[in-house]
Nucleic acid binder design. Structure first.
Length: 764
DNA sequence: CTCTAAGGTAAGGGTAATGAATATAT
DNA sequence: GATATATTCATTACCCTTACCTTAGA
């Protein structure tokens, strides 16, 4: 089975013109299509803009339960240069009941002149909307009447990415270093068309883009909490300047909207803390009065909170709104308590909606007639807290998140009060919380960013997937049958966090290993795989969990020498690799035993370095530098030789991280039980289940025979990590070198992450 | 001078994250 | 009863839209 082939077969790209197709680190395909070529081929009449047709066809043989979702945006590079880029994001939604056989998605990409009548792919109105500066009702009505729709509300990460790359392109094309020059220094005339240009591909009114950009680049924004001194000064300035927010802001070093917002919060007459019964009663009266409703009626919209606050007298509009929507409205209308069943119901109902984007959820509808729901807004915040049970909820697609939550609650239902197996590492992993039930093999997917140090090397590999088969373990042996396959879309590097103790064993299939774990602690291993590797995670009925690692395609098996590099700094880890010829024997070739009580250093990347931060000065990503990598050798050099990641090309690197989940989840301050879910692109794979001997509590790191045994002593100091081990698979020995891919992913330094690297120790 | 596109302001409804208080479990 | 942990309630920094206003240039 070769998932590589499946993927490349299922998506065929036809272009009319000669184009360059590259892939960025996010998995986006970027089509570079020069105008002149397009003209030659497409149209003799230069007045007629050329049609560029990109045809994506879907072969569903291997994707029978997935629906591809492809969005396309066109981005002009500059005014003069009429070439443009198409950024295409292809995602696969989980939609079990939807089998689209032979789905062919056609996308037409047109030049701006034709924006108004383009094919029905969802991007047709984009430009019309994003090129229009409209704020009046008439403008909007006019566009709405023409059938245009546009996005409102919070900007998604994807949108911000598009915006950022548009800006970057604009700057590059004009040789401008800093966008703030344009935004804050240039005259209208000088920056002519700036906003129009950067709005390309965004289905938002130009005005919205403008606002967003101003906020983003205003360094007086995001200043943080107001100090008491600032508040005092603000009060004075307010008296002096009234509502001249710009002046007040300038005096305080804050943005105008920031000081305006802050002033809204500080009414002199405002009480704080718990509401008195009298206040609550007053609030209820006022709300009903102003909305012409009766006590008992549900009121969640159409309330002028400023007016309410004025009448209530003792609270600000925000306080009033919050109190009403999160409590009073529900109490008044005789609401019932929110239960665990409600929580499960919520997940199921959201799942039933089959929306691909969380923003598509109609909370009003969802809340309707649900007595324990206090308000749509409240329900949404409830969802937010539920969502955070998945530690990496930010990194996974919405359908995947839903699936993960369903599974999580399924497990909780099936195993109420189930205690997890021994937790020898004592890492305090969120998902091992006893009240949250069981978490089994949870593989976290994180993408390492492409190094900026290297040339923007177009990724040759298109969507090379890594497959993970995840068999959820419940107490019933039957669960093994219920395997789910997870296909990871990875052109570049993938990082997986798996369980802290495991070992690799051959499965009988050449190039296939079983990575067996003995703990349910979803901690500290990060598996970085080459595009040609498959990870199969499974849980045997009797536990321990197993992860099968194997190469994807026979060619790769035959032609490459895949190194499996394992690095861990957790105690008690067994990793075994066995020569292909040796498959049946599963003989230990090299053994490395580590003191189970070793406390390892922290190797975790902060979550924001994985691309969640949206601000210009924060767009650096986690990378590993050569220098940092060379630092490995300093660690425990007597026992383990260092190995530059560039050499690991087509290998699997297992890197341990301490308390990864906690760090990853640092934004969820309440230590909710968390679990990781994996990107599940739904490609089914039948993985052969091989009987595996249960490993005992002692874990041993076993390294390949080709380099001899390396026996780790028990005296590894507590700050040191387990060695990075290169496991050479003889089967894969002639594997082609793809080092540039990993090299580009790991090549650049980033101070934030230097700790990561310093803690790495390699050996082979 | 008028018209209009582009830029801008203030107000207010909203979200997401955090902190404080309270409840519950150990 | 003390402590730890979870949950709820309250707060706040920041976001986004709406409804206007202003200005520069055609």
């Amino acid at each position: 089975m070769s998932t590589v082939e499946e993927e490349s077969d299922t998506v065929t790209v036809e272009t009319v013109n000669s184009v360059t197709l590259t892939q960025d680190t996010e998995g986006n395909l970027i089509l570079h299509c020069p105008q002149n070529e397009a003209d030659e081929v497409d149209s003799e009449d230069s007045s007629e803009p050329p049609h560029k047709r990109l045809c994506l066809s879907e072969d569903d043989q291997s994707l029978d339960d997935s629906t591809p979702c492809i969005s396309v945006v066109a981005v002009p590079i500059s005014e003069n240069d009429q070439s443009f880029e198409v950024t295409m994001t292809a995602t696969t939604e989980v939609a079990e009941d939807e089998i689209n056989e032979g789905t062919v998605t056609q996308i037409q990409i047109l030049q701006n002149e034709q924006l108004d009548e383009i094919s029905p792919m969802g991007n047709e109105e984009v430009s019309a909307v994003s090129q229009a500066w409209f704020t009046t009702k008439e403008d909007k009505d006019s566009l709405t009447n023409k059938g245009h729709k546009w996005k409102q509300g919070m900007w998604s990460k994807e949108e911000i990415d598009i915006l950022m790359s548009n800006i970057e392109r604009y700057l590059k094309a004009r040789g401008i270093k800093d966008a703030t020059e344009i935004i804050f220094e240039m005259s209208k005339d000088e920056r002519k068309d700036f906003y129009r240009t950067i709005a390309w591909g965004l289905n938002r009114p130009l005005f919205a883009v403008y606002r967003r950009v101003l906020r983003m680049y205003d360094d007086r924004n995001h200043v943080g909490k107001y100090t008491p001194e600032e508040i005092e000064k603000l009060k004075e300035l307010r008296i002096k300047h009234g509502n001249d927010w710009a002046t007040i802001g300038a005096a305080l070093g804050r943005s105008a909207s920031s000081v305006k917002d802050r002033c809204r919060l500080m009414k002199d007459t405002c009480n704080t803390g718990k509401w008195t019964e009298k206040e609550e009663k007053r609030l209820a009266e006022v709300v009903h009065e102003l909305t012409s409703t009766e006590p008992g009626d549900i009121v969640t919209q159409g309330v002028s909170w400023a007016a309410v606050a004025e009448r209530v007298g003792t609270r600000s509009e925000k306080q009033c709104r919050s109190k009403w929507l999160n409590y009073l409205n529900w109490k008044q209308s005789g609401g019932t308590e929110w239960t665990k069943e409600d929580e499960i119901n919520l997940i199921l109902r959201i799942a039933e909606l089959e929306v691909s984007d969380e923003n598509d959820i109609n909370w009003d509808l969802l809340a309707e007639g649900w007595s324990s729901v206090r308000s749509p807004q409240w329900l949404r915040s409830k969802w937010w807290t539920i969502k955070r049970q998945i530690a990496n909820h930010k990194d996974v697609s919405f359908p995947v998140l839903i699936k993960g939550l369903k599974q999580l609650h399924e497990n909780q239902k099936n195993n109420p009060g189930h205690q997890l197996p021994e937790n020898k590492c004592g890492s305090g992993l969120a998902n091992t919380n006893s009240s949250s039930g069981v978490q089994h093999v949870q593989i976290r997917v994180a993408r390492l960013e492409e190094s900026t140090g290297n040339a923007p090397s177009p990724m040759a590999a298109l969507q090379i997937p890594v497959q993970i088969t995840h068999v959820s373990s419940t107490d019933s042996p039957a669960a093994t049958v219920d395997s789910e396959t997870i296909t990871l879309n990875s052109g570049t590097l993938q990082t997986f966090e798996i369980l802290p103790s495991f070992h690799l064993q051959p499965t009988g299939t050449p190039g296939t290993y079983l990575l067996q774990t003995s703990s349910s602690q979803g901690l500290p291993l990060t598996l970085t795989t080459s595009p040609t590797m498959t990870l199969t995670a499974a849980t045997a009925p009797s536990s321990p969990e197993q992860i099968i690692v194997h190469a994807l395609s026979p060619e790769h098996l035959l032609n490459t020498s895949d190194n499996v590099t394992v690095q861990c700094h957790t105690p008690s880890v067994i990793i075994r690799t066995v020569a292909a010829e040796d498959i049946s024997s599963s003989v230990t070739q090299t053994e490395l035993a580590v003191d189970p009580d070793i406390q390892s250093a922290d190797l975790t990347d902060p979550p924001d370095t994985l691309g969640t931060n949206t601000f210009p000065d924060d767009i650096h990503q986690s990378k590993l530098s050569d220098e940092e990598q060379s630092a490995y050798s300093e660690d425990d050099a007597s026992k383990f030789s260092s190995r530059n990641s560039r050499e690991l090309m087509d290998g699997v690197m297992v890197r341990t991280e301490e308390d990864a989940s906690l760090k990853q989840d640092e934004d969820s301050h309440s230590d909710l039980p968390s679990t990781y879910v994996t990107e599940d692109l739904g490609s089914p794979t039948i993985e052969e289940q091989v009987d595996q001997p249960t490993i005992d509590d002692e874990t041993v790191l076993i390294v390949p025979s080709s380099h001899g045994f390396i026996q780790a002593a028990d005296d590894i100091d507590s700050e040191s990590v387990l060695p990075l081990t290169t496991l050479t698979d003889p089967i894969l020995q002639h594997h082609g070198d793809g080092s540039h891919i990993i090299g580009s992913s790991l090549g650049s330094p980033d101070s934030e992450d230097s700790k990561d690297v310093e803690d790495l120790v390699s050996c082979h």
